[in-house]
Amino acid sequence: MNITIRIPSPLRRFTEQAAQIELNANTVGEALMALNAQYPDLQTQLMDEQGKLRNFVNIFHNKIDIKQLQGMESTLDEGSELRIVPAIAGGKK
């Protein structure tokens, strides 16, 4: 499936500033693997040593949190959109 992944600005320094990445994958896990292969520095930002998604990163498939779907096994459709949404804290300063 041809899908797109949207990269939030805090992580774009790991994707050569790309905001959107198009790739081919059948599941969320495959898509993240392909993304990490393309941008190895991104891997440690998104995953822990066990390959689990970090606690401060959420992935949404077509606007639904993959935790409400089948997690990394969630299947993608042609034209699916994945969004990476990390915790951000700014507001006051």
Partner: peptide, 25 residues
Amino acid sequence: CLYPAPPPPGLVPSCAEGGVLGILP
């Protein structure tokens, strides 16, 4: 529920280091 734990310090730059568009807030 959304973020059970914060990123370790230094991983995400603060606004003081990362900048912010003045109208955004």
